[in-house]
């Protein structure tokens, strides 16, 4: 089955991105496809390469980059939401790309299920 994921909250502030990550991992483990992960609202902050968590904490941004690399995930950051919040190409972590909201609607059309994680 093809899943699309929308993440609406930033890292460390809210559990949404942790839940989404663990959901994606479990889905991939079961042989499902993650069609796209779309980052919206404060969720765009998950893509900041400037994030530096303490050493004993999980690295949420790097974790997404790694999962994207391992499974060829399409991590899309909403351009309008990103620009509002200071996320640009210069500080975009590996594996993420910036694109328009149409990518969210398209993911909803193409995936069998769209799951939202937010506040």
């Amino acid at each position: 089955m093809k899943f699309a994921i929308m993440i609406n909250e930033g890292p460390y502030q809210h559990q949404a991105t942790d839940s989404a990550y663990l959901f994606c991992k479990a889905a991939l483990d079961k042989g499902h496809e993650i069609r796209r992960v779309f980052f919206y609202h404060d969720g765009v902050n998950n893509a900041s390469s400037l994030t530096e968590p303490p050493q004993d904490d999980r690295n949420i941004v790097a974790r997404w980059s790694k999962l994207a690399e391992e499974h060829k995930l399409d991590l899309v950051v909403c351009v309008a939401a990103a620009l509002r919040r200071g996320i640009q190409e210069e500080n975009l972590a590996p594996g993420f790309r910036i694109s328009g909201l149409g990518q969210l609607v398209e993911a909803g059309i193409e995936a069998d299920r769209l799951v939202t994680f937010g506040d």
């Binding site: 479990a26 483990d29 079961k30 069998d112």
Partner: peptide, 14 residues
Amino acid sequence: YGGFVDLVAEHKNC
């Protein structure tokens, strides 16, 4: 989390 995935898959929508 695996059960979470199964529940989403089993239902027509969420």
